[in-house]
Design a binder for these strands. Structure first.
Lengths: 253, 253
DNA sequence: CAGTGCCCTTTGTCATGACATTATCAGGGG
DNA sequence: CCCCTGATAATGTCATGACAAAGGGCACTG
C-alpha cells in the first residue's frame, strides 16, 4: 500500500511561544490536530519520526512524544513500534469530554434555555449519602430542571449537590449551566463516572419533554469529583433520544 | 480535615521484576491500584510525593510519575500541584474498556450464548463504504446475531466487516465473540468510536429480545480501528435496557 | 486581630542520553 | 524459489537533572 510520506505543511513549524503559559507539548499537539482536521494530514499518512520532528522543532524527544501521546489518547493517531505514527482513518467528530449538556449545546449553533422546576434543601437519605460520600442527614441541594435547545425541551435534569454548594441561587441556576456556575466558584471537576441506559418515560417526563406516552428516554447517572477527590455532584438525567446521544472514543492501552 | 498520612503497606515495595517484559511503571501502577481496591489506600488518603516514592522504590521520578499517571487516567487518583496526589472518593467499579459484550458477560458470572441469524457477503453501499473507509462495491461480511446471557436475550448485534475478514466462518461466529476471533487472527483493536442512544424497538427486535411491543432499546453504533488506523468493524447494536447499560469514566485533562 | 507577603512543598514541564523491543526489508543459503 | 538471518528504523522504556508554577502555612506587619 502506498503511504503518503507527509511532508508536513510549513504552518506546523511556526515559532513556538516559549514564554507564555501554554506548554510546548500542547502547542505542538494543537497544531497537529488542526492539520488533521483541516485535511493537511490525511488519514493513513505517516508522521515524521519523533527524533526528526524534535530536531526540526528545536524540541527534545520527550516533549514531541508527549504531544503525540495527547492525540493518541484522543483516538486521532495510532503508534506502531518499528513503523511510525499514522493518522487514524475516519473523520473525527469533536468528541464530548467533561462537559455538561449546557456546554454541548452552547458550543453548537443552538442556544440553550433552562427552566427550574424544583429547588429545595433536603437531608441526605442513605442512597444520596452513599454516592456523595457524606453522612446521612447532611444538607443537600436538590434541583430539577428542564433543559431546552432553541425552545425545544431536550432533557430533564435532576441533581443533588453537597453542603458546600447548597447556596446556589435560583436565579443563577435558571440563567447558567451547572458546570458553568461551579467553574465560576473555582471548583473544578476532574473526574466523573457515568452510567448510560434507557427506559420508558414516566408520565411527568412525557409531558415535560413533549414526547409520546410511554416513549423511550436515554438516561444518564453521573457522579462528579473535584480536584481533591470529593464528590461534587450527583445527577440523574433523562434525554429525548431523537435530539441527543452520547459519543465516546475508546483507546486501547 | 484530617488526612490519612498513608504509610504505605510494605507489600507495595516488594522486589520489582527488572528482567521480565512487564514495564516497571506498570508494575507500580498495578500495586497501587490493588492497594486502593483492597482498601489499603482509603479514599482521600495522600500518596507519598513522587521523589520520595522513587527513592524508596529505587526508581527515577519519570517512572513513578508515569505509574501514577496511569491511575489518574483511570479516574482513581487526583493530583494537585503543591499538594500531592490523593485517592478519589467513591468506590470504583471495574471499568469497561475496549471490550465486547461477549467479554463483559464472560468476565462476570454469566455465561454468554450466541445465535447467528444472518451471515452473508454483500457489496458495500455508500453508507458502509463511508464508515469503513473502503470503495463502494467492496465485499463486506454482514452478520446479525442475538447475544444472550444465561439463555436470556440481551442484545441484537449487527456487524459489517471489510474484505480482509469476510472469511470468518459461521461456526466460529456462533461459538465465539467477534473480538475474540479478531484477536485470534492477530488483528488488534486500538481505537473505537461509539455513539450511544435510545429508540423504540422494531417489531423484529421486540420478538428477538422478548420485550414488550414498542418498548425502549439502548442503541450503540461503533466503528473500530486496528493498529494501522484502518477500520476493522462497524457495528449497529441494540440492547435490552433492563439488562445492560454503559459505564464511562471521564477525566479532565 | 486581621491581612499580607514570603517560604516551603509538591507537581508540571522540558532537556539529554541510553538501551530495549519490534517490524520491515534486503540478502544469502538451502 | 523459499526460508532464515541480519541490518535498519522507529517507537517503548528508563535514568538524571533542572527549573517553573501553584497551593498552603507561617511569620511579620498594619
Amino acid at each position: 500500500m502506498k503511504q503518503a510520506e507527509s511532508t508536513l505543511p510549513g504552518g506546523l513549524f511556526m515559532d513556538l511561544d516559549r514564554s507564555g503559559p501554554v506548554p510546548l507539548y500542547f502547542q505542538i499537539a494543537s497544531r497537529i490536530e488542526n492539520a488533521i482536521l483541516e485535511g493537511d494530514l490525511p488519514p493513513g499518512s505517516r508522521l515524521e519520526n519523533e527524533i526528526a520532528l524534535g530536531e526540526r522543532l528545536g524540541l527534545s524527544r520527550p516533549t514531541v512524544r508527549r504531544a503525540i501521546q495527547e492525540l493518541v489518547d484522543k483516538g486521532m493517531l495510532v503508534r506502531r513500534r518499528g513503523i511510525g505514527t499514522q493518522v487514524v482513518h475516519g473523520q473525527v467528530s469533536r468528541k464530548v469530554e467533561l462537559t455538561s449538556l449546557y456546554d454541548d449545546l452552547a458550543s453548537g449553533d443552538r442556544h440553550p434555555s433552562t427552566s427550574l422546576l424544583l429547588h429545595e434543601v433536603i437531608e441526605a437519605d442513605a442512597r444520596i449519602a452513599e454516592v456523595l460520600g457524606v453522612p446521612v442527614g447532611d444538607p443537600i441541594l436538590h434541583i430539577r430542571r428542564v433543559r431546552g435547545a432553541d425552545d425545544v425541551p431536550v432533557a430533564v435534569l435532576e441533581n443533588y449537590l453537597p453542603r458546600d454548594l447548597v447556596d446556589l441561587s435560583e436565579e443563577d441556576l435558571a440563567e447558567h449551566g451547572l458546570y458553568q456556575l461551579l467553574r465560576a466558584r473555582g471548583t473544578m471537576i476532574r473526574v466523573a463516572r457515568q452510567r448510560i441506559g434507557a427506559r420508558r418515560a414516566s408520565a411527568e417526563e412525557t409531558t415535560l419533554l413533549e414526547i409520546d406516552k410511554g416513549g423511550p428516554v436515554l438516561t444518564m447517572e453521573r457522579t462528579a469529583f473535584d480536584n481533591s477527590g470529593r464528590a461534587i455532584e450527583f445527577g440523574s438525567h433523562c434525554y429525548r433520544p431523537d435530539l441527543y446521544s452520547f459519543e465516546v472514543t475508546l483507546v486501547d492501552k
